[in-house]
Computed example of a mutant assay.
Amino acid sequence: MRLDKTELALIGLVVVFVLGGMAAPGWLVFLMTVALAKALVVQGVVMQMKAGLVSFGQGLFYCVGGYAVGMGGQFLGINAALVLLALGVVVAIIIAMVLGLLLTRYREIFFAMLSLAFSMILYGVLVKSQELGSTDGFNVNNWTLFGSAMEDGTQATMTVFILTVLCAGVVALFLNRYARSAVGMTCEAIRENEVRVEYLGLSPRWIQYANYVMAAGISALGGGLTALAAGHVDPDMAYWTTSGEFVFIALLGGTGHVFAPFLAAIVFALVRTYAIEFVPNGWQMILGFTLLAIVVFLPKGLWSLFTRKNAGAVAPAPSKTSTGEAGA
Results as ranks from 00 to 15, higher is better:
T157L: 07
V314I: 15
G312L: 15
W27T: 01
G224F: 10
M158F: 09
A182R: 13
N139L: 07
F111L: 01
L145D: 01
G26V: 10
T135M: 12
A269V: 13
V16N: 07
L103M: 15
T307F: 06
F118S: 02
L305C: 02
K5C: 02
E192C: 04
V29R: 10
I190P: 09
A210H: 14
A264P: 00
L302P: 00
P280C: 08
Y274L: 15
M47D: 04
Q155E: 03
C167N: 12
M49W: 14
Y212N: 09
A149L: 02
W240M: 09
W27G: 07
L126Y: 09
G20T: 08
L53R: 12
V213E: 11
L87Y: 07
K38L: 15
L19S: 05
M22C: 00
W303K: 04
I249Y: 13
L126A: 10
V271Q: 09
A51L: 13
V195S: 03
M285Y: 07
I95E: 03
A264W: 10
A250H: 11
Q284A: 04
A117N: 09
L163P: 01
V69M: 10
M285D: 02
V69N: 06
V170W: 05
K300L: 12
A117Y: 07
Y212I: 07
A315V: 03
Y212K: 10
A328M: 14
Y199C: 02
Q43V: 14
V140Q: 02
A220G: 10
L114N: 03
A264K: 02
A80F: 06
P261R: 14
L82T: 08
V197A: 02
V258D: 09
L60F: 15
L292G: 12
V18W: 05
A168L: 11
E188K: 13
D136E: 11
S129L: 07
V183K: 06
E192S: 05
V46M: 13
S203Y: 15
T154L: 05
V160K: 00
C167R: 08
V18C: 09
G88F: 11
E245P: 03
F174D: 00
C63T: 15
G223F: 08
G256R: 07
A168M: 13
F56G: 04
A168K: 08
P299E: 06
F111C: 01
F161N: 02
A86Q: 02
I249E: 12
L202G: 05
Q130H: 10
I286N: 01
L101E: 14
L99W: 13
A35P: 01
A317T: 11
R177D: 01
V16D: 06
G224P: 05
F306S: 03
L101C: 15
G59A: 14
F146C: 00
L31S: 03
K309W: 13
A220V: 04
G137I: 06
V296C: 07
T226S: 12
